[in-house]
């Protein structure tokens, strides 16, 4: 499995033009704050429209400005883990986990709830409300919620940035295990060198809206 991205975006003074390819395994999108990393993820997820470009996963076009293709976020089968976990506060952990799972057709599912809950170690939290969880627990639930939609591509936007060091160490093994467990490309945004070294098989550097390496 692989995906291609070639997008351009303008926002006032800021111009972004990024093109890269990535395949199964974890690819780090590495660069300083404000480099445009999150914008790239938003464009792949379909919540931000590029001014020009093309995005394709496994040969299926998600966006193509020339051909006039722009799939809605719900049709892209792209999992998105945000910096803030964004769990739904009115739903239990269980209902959060199954929110997207239930919307995924049985034929397209490869992730099973029992297995993912075990891998992430969140079995004891299922009946709790998100507001009562620690930051690390919330982020693990958010990871599970995205994986359970059986995406063909996973986007992670600085999933550890809002956590302290102890919590980071708590979550890193789960991300590693997940990376080896699901056979899909993962695009992992970070500005921390240590996370790149530990997790990534490939690195794409971004600075001022341009690919540097």
């Amino acid at each position: 499995m692989s995906f291609d991205v070639d997008v351009e975006l303008r926002r006032g003074d800021f111009a972004l033009a990024v093109a890269f390819q990535a395949s199964t395994g974890l690819t780090a999108l590495f660069g300083p704050s404000g480099a445009g990393k999150t914008s790239v993820l938003n464009m792949i997820a379909g919540v931000l429209k590029p001014a020009r470009g093309r995005i394709a996963v496994d040969g299926q076009v998600l966006f193509d400005s020339v051909a006039g293709v722009n799939l809605k976020p719900e049709h892209r089968k792209v999992g998105y883990i945000f910096q803030d976990a964004r769990l739904f506060p009115h739903l239990s952990v269980r209902d959060n986990l199954l929110y997207g799972y239930k919307l995924t057709g049985a034929a397209g599912r490869y992730a099973a709830p029992d297995h993912i809950i075990e891998v992430l170690g969140i079995g004891a939290l299922l009946e709790r409300q998100p507001g009562s969880l620690s930051g690390g627990e919330q982020q693990r639930v958010a990871v599970g919620r995205a994986i359970l939609t059986s995406p063909r591509l996973l986007l992670m936007d600085e999933p550890l940035a809002s956590l302290d060091d102890a919590r980071k160490q708590e979550i890193l093994p789960y991300i590693e295990q997940l990376r080896d467990d699901v056979k899909i490309p993962i695009l992992y945004v970070t500005h921390t060198r240590a996370e790149v070294d530990r997790l990534a098989a490939a690195v794409i550097g971004i600075e001022n809206g341009r690919v540097t390496s």
Binding site: G46, E74, F88, L103, T149
Partner: peptide
């Protein structure tokens, strides 16, 4: 937005 990326229209 999170709900949309999880497959909800």
């Amino acid at each position: 937005i999170a709900s949309r990326t999880l497959g909800a229209g």
